[in-house]
Amino acid sequence: MLEIKNLHVQLEEEDKKILKGVDLTVEPGKVHAIMGPNGSGKSTLSYVLSGRDGYEVTEGTATLDGQDLLAMEPEERAAAGLFLAFQYPVEIPGVGNMTFLRTAVNAQRKARGQEEMSSTEFLKVIREKAKELQIDAEMLKRPVNVGFSGGEKKRNEILQMAMLEPRMCILDETDSGLDVDAMKLVSDGVNALRDEGRGFLVITHYQRLLNHIRPDVVHIMSNGRIVKTGGPELALEVEENGYADILGEAV
């Protein structure tokens, strides 16, 4: 489903290479985790895949269901089924959470040639999904992420994911800033979305998130490359011994 081949990326503004040949394939129904130390290029990978400005792809390809992601605008990638749960969800004063979500849902439907969701239907669906994530009506009415706690912001990301029903979900350090209860809530939200047709790429520093969202495959990223790939046991190894051992071994 998601296929990344030999991806090389550098910053646009300066001659700094961040990704140095990433190869990765996520199959439908699978959860892949990427772990790695700070500065290894994990977040850059998520931004490049979702189309953020400021990065230059110098080599390689990234496709979603065979479509060239790198040639698409961010909104086209979203309509094609790519979703990035942000590490730092952005606050947007003046735009109501509901307005935002309905605009997004209907824009994607329109782009895919589907009928737009009526406001009654939308309300019904969002109320249901919000309830599961313990997001109350008040939070839905407030401007996007404004005044939300760290946990509320992450829950809001998962609510968006649930509403947009993407094919391929990238979670960028979704566990950062979460306490144990919030982590459970968010993980339950993610697990509820696990489906045969849907792929996940979970980016994290720590193994603890992977206790809740059980990965099928774990990759270790370092210095812009995936240096080791294995099963869930690889995450436990990191937790026990830190990155140094594994990296030493891989180099």
């Binding site: 605008e73 909104e75 997004a104």
Partner: peptide, 16 residues
């Protein structure tokens, strides 16, 4: 970018 990453087209995102 946040709006566009959720599928809102550029022009619509700017208007919002």
């Amino acid at each position: 970018f946040y709006l566009r990453a959720r599928g809102v087209p550029l022009k619509r995102a700017q208007d919002l």
